[in-house]
Design a protein around this nucleic acid. Structure first.
Length: 316
DNA sequence: AACACGGACAACCGCGACTGT
DNA sequence: TACAGTCGCGGTTGTCCGTGT
C-alpha cells in the first residue's frame, strides 16, 4: 500500500519558483507573522504549490536570516569536523552554522568536501583511511580515540564555561569567535552526540562513582564530567562554582598517558599537526596534480583516520 | 558557433518522527 | 493504545550555467 501523497498534486505547480511566487510566499508569512500550517498555507496565500514545496522554498531560500555567498574556510572546516562526529546529519550540522541551511551544507559536502576527503585517502562516510594500512588507531572505534574524545569533551565543557563567563563581559552574540562555537556546540545536539559518544564506551575507566552517575541524564555537564573523571566524581569541576580552576592531576596524568598511547607526545603537537592537515584539506586542489599528496601526507603525525575527529576536538 | 560535459545548486520524493485526538 | 495528520530530514533528481573541444 503506497503512502498517500502529501497533498493533492493535481493542478499544482512544480519546478523552479518564480519571483512572483516568492513574493507571495514572503508577503503571506510576513503578514501572518509566521507560516502557520504549511499544508493550508498555499491555499490561503493563493499559491499553486503544495505545502511541502512552500516550506522548502522558505527554509532553504526565502528565510530572511539565510546567509548568502560562498562558505568561508572556517565554515568548511567546521562542516568537515562536524561531519566526522555526526555523519550525514545535515540539519544538526546546519544548526551550528548560523544562516546556512541543511540543503546548502549537503550540497557543499557532496560537491566539494567529500571529494577532498576521498583525495586525501579518507572514506567520506567514516573518515577512516580507504586503504587502512595504518589501522593501529581507528576512529571512532578505537578505545584510545574514544577516550581522547572523552577527555576532549571535558575540555569542551571547560571551554564552554569560560566562554559563558567571558560572554558576560563581552556580550556579543554574533561575535563568531571560537569560544562562541564551543558554547553553541556544547549546548546543542552536537554536544549531546559527543556526550553519547563518550558514554558509549563504558568498559574502560569506569568507577563505581561514574557508574552511579551514568544513570543520570547525560544532558548536564556534571554528568559527563562525572562520567569521564571518576577521581573527581564530578564534584569539583562541574558540580559547583568553587574550585573551577582546580586541575585534576589524576586526569592530567591520564590525559598524558592517553596522548602517549596514541603517539601524540603532547596536545600541542596533536593540535599543530591536525591544524596543518586541515589546512591541506581545505587548500586541496581537486583537479590538480595529486602527486604532491603522496609525499606530504606522510608528514603528518596522525594517521589520516584521526585527522577529522582529533582536529575537531583539538580545534575546539 | 555548436555541442558535450561536468559542476553547482535548487527542488522533489519518500520515510520516519512527532503530535493531537 | 491506535490512528491520522503534519512536519522535518536525508537522499536523489532536475536544471542551469560555465568550460572545453
Amino acid at each position: 500500500m503506497g503512502r498517500a501523497p502529501c497533498c493533492d498534486k493535481r493542478g499544482l505547480k512544480k519546478g523552479p519558483w518564480t519571483p512572483e511566487e516568492d513574493e507571495i510566499l514572503v508577503e503571506y508569512i510576513k503578514k501572518n507573522g509566521g507560516h502557520g500550517s504549511w499544508r493550508s498555507l498555499p491555499k490561503l496565500a493563493g499559491l499553486l504549490r503544495c505545502g511541502k514545496s512552500c516550506r522548502l522554498r522558505w527554509t532553504n531560500y526565502l528565510r530572511p536570516d539565510i546567509k548568502r555567498g560562498p562558505f568561508t574556510q572556517e565554515e568548511e572546516k567546521l562542516v568537515v569536523q562536524l561531519h566526522g562526529i555526526l555523519g550525514n546529519r545535515w540539519a544538526s550540522i546546519a544548526a551550528q552554522l548560523p544562516g546556512r541551511t541543511d540543503n546548502e551544507i549537503k550540497n557543499l559536502w557532496n560537491t566539494h568536501l567529500k571529494k577532498r576527503l576521498v583525495c586525501m585517502g579518507l572514506d567520506p562516510q567514516t573518515h577512516e583511511p580507504l586503504n587502512s594500512c595504518s589501522t593501529a588507531i581507528k576512529a571512532p572505534a578505537s578505545p584510545t580515540t574514544r577516550h581522547m574524545a572523552q577527555w576532549e569533551s571535558a575540555r569542551l565543557e571547560a571551554e564552554a564555561r569560560l566562554s559563558r563567563e567571558s560572554s558576560l563581559f563581552n556580550p556579543n552574540p554574533v561575535g563568531g569567535t571560537d569560544s562562541d562555537y564551543f558554547l553553541r556546540i556544547w549546548n546543542s545536539e552536537v554536544g549531546e552526540s559527543f556526550r553519547k559518544f563518550s558514554m558509549g564506551d563504558k568498559t574502560l575507566c569506569q568507577s563505581p562513582v561514574s557508574q552511579a552517575s551514568s544513570s543520570t541524564k547525560c544532558g548536564s555537564m556534571s554528568a559527563i564530567t562525572t562520567e569521564i573523571c571518576p577521581i573527581l566524581g564530578g564534584s569539583s569541576i562541574a558540580g559547583s562554582n568553587q574550585n573551577e580552576d582546580t586541575e585534576c592531576k589524576s586526569c592530567k596524568s591520564y590525559t598524558e598517558e592517553m596522548m602517549a598511547a596514541s603517539d601524540c607526545s603532547s596536545s600541542d603537537e596533536l593540535e599543530d599537526s591536525s591544524e596543518n592537515a586541515f589546512q591541506l584539506l581545505l587548500d586541496f586542489p581537486i583537479n590538480n596534480d595529486m602527486s604532491f599528496l603522496e609525499e606530504d601526507i606522510d608528514k603528518y603525525a596522525l594517521p589520516p583516520a584521526m585527522l577529522t575527529e582529533s582536529s575537531f576536538i583539538c580545534h575546539l
